[in-house]
Amino acid sequence: MNIHNYEKLWLIAAMLLIIGFIVTITYGSVGLGIAMIDDSEETIDPNALEDHERFGDLGVHQTGDGEYDVNIRAYQFNFEPGSSALGVHDPIVVPENSEVTLYVTSPDVIHSFSVVGTNANTMVVPGEISVMTVEFNEAREYGILCNEYCGSGHHGMEGVIEVVPEDEFHLFSVAGVDAPESAQAGDEVEITATVDNDALDADSAAVSLEIGEETFENELEVDAESSASTTFTVDTGALDLEDAVDIDWTVTVEDGSEATLEDGSASGSIALETDDDENDDTTDDDNDESDGGDQ
C-alpha cells in the first residue's frame, strides 16, 4: 500500500494526540483523584424510597470531622432537600471546609443533579443511587438544576446549596415541646423544649420561644448526638393578650441550622380558660394539628 510520507507523519501525530488525550484523562483520575459516578451502591426500589435506610431519612447528616452525607430525592420536579426558591423544601445547607458526599436517587423518571457552574454533575436514574463526594471550601451559594429532560415541568426543577461559615452551621432540631393545652389567664405556664443535636460535637443552641407578642431566649448546651431540654416560664398575665382565646407559641432553635428547618421549629397554642370551657374541643384540635407541638 502506497502511503505518502506526509500522510505517515500525520498518522503518527494523530496517534500521539489520541494517546495524549488518554494520558491526560488518566492523570485526572489517578493523579488528581477525580472519581467517576459508578456502581458502588446497591440498587433501590424506586417505589419504596421511604423504607430505605438512607432515603427514609433525607437531609444532611454528619459522618465524621468535617464530613457529611446528604441524602437527596430528585423527583418530578423538585429536589428534596434543595428546592427552596419557591419554598417547596429546605435548601441544602453545609458548612464551609467540609467534605460532603451527596447521595441522590429518583422515585420516578431519569433526572440529573447538577451544581451549576461546577463539575459536580450526575445523572439520577430510578433504581440506582448516584454518589458524589465534593469539597466545599468557600462560604457561598450554589444553584442546582436538573439537566435531563424529565417531563413537562423539567425547566422548573432547581434548587440551592448554601455553604455557611463553620460557626454558623448546626445540626439542631426541635425534638419536642411540652406545653400545657390550656391555662387560666394570668397564670404562669411552663413550656419545655427538647432539642436534638445530630452533630458529632457538643454545641450550644440558642432556643427561642415566641409567645403572644413576646420573645424569650435560652442558651442550651447539647452534647454530641444527644438531646437536652430547657424550660421557659411565662407569666401569661404579663402578655398583651387583648381578647384572644388562644395564645400561639413557636419554639425555634438556632437560625443557622436551616438544614433542619422543617424540624427546626415547633408551634402550637394554649387555650385560655376563662369562666367556662366551651372551647375545649377546638383547642384540642389545634394542638393535634400543631407541628410536633406536644410530642
Binding site: A85, V116, T118, L145, C146, N147, E148, H155, G159, V160
Partner: peptide
C-alpha cells in the same frame, strides 16, 4: 461551559443565575 442545560424550555431560574 456556564452550566446552561440542554433540552430545557425556559432555562431561567428563581434561585440562581448563570455567571
Amino acid at each position: 461551559l456556564l452550566g446552561m442545560p440542554r433540552r430545557t424550555a425556559e432555562p431561567e431560574y428563581a434561585g440562581f443565575q448563570f455567571e
